[in-house]
Design a protein around this nucleic acid. Structure first.
Lengths: 352, 352
DNA sequence: CTGAAAGCGCTTACAG
DNA sequence: CTGAAAGCGCTTACAG
């Protein structure tokens, strides 16, 4: 019950260095206006005492606001995937608000690179202290983060990565390995024919992300010397009618497809198609814990969903900026999310 | 950049109520010595202003230490499962230490109920403000938590539950459903014979926990009208020799077992046996992300591991006490952990 | 280059 | 039953 830790604070440092606490504060925060001599003296004492600043006191005393910007896709009618990261962001915000952190969210339209650029420009004008973004448009994101880097604004990627940038960190899936897991799950109900389809439903079917996933997917079959034939179906129009049309054609050409792997969360539209066309013989694997997907999972039309904890991505992304800007502690450059496997049986307890 | 929130604190409440902040403080903390009249006046203002106390300031000003006790199994040579919850506990402790929380851990021996009772008695003497425990011995735990309840010490269960107690909350798996998932995973490589074995390796093979898991396991086959025959193997001596001996006997009696489901983390000893006896035809499912288990998973001897985030259980368990004792916010009575499915392919990114 | 003093929003004796 | 004052460990103008 007694307080064992003989805690040393700025006061004790000041006493030992024969200076005022204001000077100690200057040294702690690397502010200018301290002679090299006293600076060294104070730093030595800090080291000796293994001084740990009290963030509570620090944030309480400082009325400085730290403002962060979020740049993510708007939730569309097509998919509410981005609700989950937003939920994580909101949760993190609630936790760090009391430390004087303020968050502003900017939404762009996944179908419009222009909207991304517009919002990015707004952020640049806003003099934020840090940025969290989903770099859905790679080249546009590159330009934007270069500007951030010039302004010394730290930025964090979630959901997908842009390699070789000066980002504070990346928080999201290891896409190749995720595709690899998808392949494994696709093999469970394979029979003699061994034909599977990779289905891409997206305006940008050859974006870096999808290519990574597909590469992982194909590698699994190679690594295991499986005779499986892999066909690829690209569906650029994401509405359900187009999906049904394109799938009808593909399955007509390849009658003996036994499994379909959808590379993103739009697997529900494939499930709906399979249901309508009574093709429950085909096993179906896709992404993300969306209400629609879970419904098809429970109906047995989707066999597996893979999920990368989108909510946690948002949460951790914001906390990484907080760590950097408020606590000043180091942040790991890459944080891969788990590749969670969701089935009908375990879905009820899944945590995004 | 500007501070938008017009924040009202005790000072403003005091001003409006025409009292001192000391009196406001008394009302906020429900301390005695305030007339009903002023109490009501202050409470009304608090409601009107939607006053949210600033925990930073509160913990900074208060030099009160909150001491918590942990009662969990010691890590044994047989299994290092309990390292994970401990890691979570340590992480939570680091986070809340600055709020004046102090944690003391008491270890008991999973093979000795006596050691549990001894440690429990020590905790009762220690005047702790809260307790986190793994109720491995149900009856002994019942007695202990009754004593806690009498002393008004809140307590939290992790890993397994003791129903109908006055616990603050339970954080752990839904055991029935976990067995259900285990059953599903056991069916993947089933062929014509359809015979599976449930293997219990524990001193207490009919503890409540294992029974729950087994019930879930059996229910899956019933629910799906599968003709599967389920045999049960109880192994009371947990060393590898005994396991090998008992398994040899069981597999001799039942030559056509196609899958083995081990109800706890000791699946590695079954894997070792299968490896030695070259029975890679048998598919193997078990529990927990232990080094040894992962090794066998990677060798292909274990097909699936189920995991309930033991580290998170420890973390959340401690945070629940913190929530109750420091923040005073409500805590959910039951928090089921996800039932995670781990394979060779996704294990590298698993988060305990 | 340095320091004295006020203040952040609370809690805690102490006095009445 | 109530209040004045000191203090928690910092930061922030301001003065020199």
């Amino acid at each position: 019950m007694e307080k064992e830790n003989t805690y040393y604070g700025v006061k004790e440092i000041a006493r030992r260095a024969n200076v005022s606490i204001a000077t100690v504060d200057r040294v702690i925060h690397n502010r200018s206006g301290v002679s090299e001599k006293t600076k060294k003296k104070i730093n030595d004492i800090i080291k000796e005492l293994d001084y740990q600043p009290n963030i509570l006191a620090s944030r309480l005393a400082s009325r400085k606001i730290i403002s962060l910007a979020i740049l993510i896709p708007r939730v569309s009618e097509e998919t509410d995937f981005w609700e989950a990261p937003m939920k994580g962001i909101t949760r993190a915000e609630a936790e760090i608000r009391k430390y004087g952190v303020q968050v502003t969210t900017f939404y762009f339209d996944l179908n419009s690179q222009e909207s991304f650029n517009e919002q990015a420009a707004l952020i640049l004008e806003g003099h934020f202290h840090g940025v969290l973004l989903a770099p859905s448009f790679i080249e546009a994101s590159r330009k934007f983060v270069h500007a951030c880097h010039k302004l010394k604004i730290p930025f964090v990627f979630i959901d997908s990565d842009v390699p070789d940038e000066h980002n504070l960190c990346y928080i999201g899936p290891h896409l190749f390995q995720s595709g690899y897991v998808g392949a494994k799950l696709s093999t469970y109900r394979l029979k003699e024919k061994h034909k599977v389809a990779v289905v891409n439903i997206s305006k940008e079917t050859d974006s870096y992300n999808y290519l990574q996933i597909e590469e992982g997917f194909r590698s699994y079959f190679k690594d295991h010397d499986l005779p499986t034939e892999i066909i690829r179906v690209d569906i650029k129009d994401t509405d359900s009618l187009s999906v049904a049309r394109d799938l009808t054609r593909a399955l007509h050409e390849h009658e003996d497809v036994e499994a379909i792997f959808v590379t993103n969360s739009r697997v529900f539209s494939v499930a709906a198609f399979l249901k309508k066309s009574k093709r429950t013989d085909i096993s179906l694997i896709g992404y993300d814990y969306l209400k629609e997907n879970i419904s098809f999972l429970n109906q047995g039309l989707i066999d597996f969903l893979i999920c990368h904890k989108p909510e946690e991505q948002g949460y951790r992304g914001l906390m990484a900026l907080y760590q950097r800007l408020v606590l000043g502690t180091p942040v790991e450059k890459t944080h891969f999310m788990p590749i969670d496997i969701i089935t009908k049986e375990n879905q009820a307890f899944y945590q995004n």
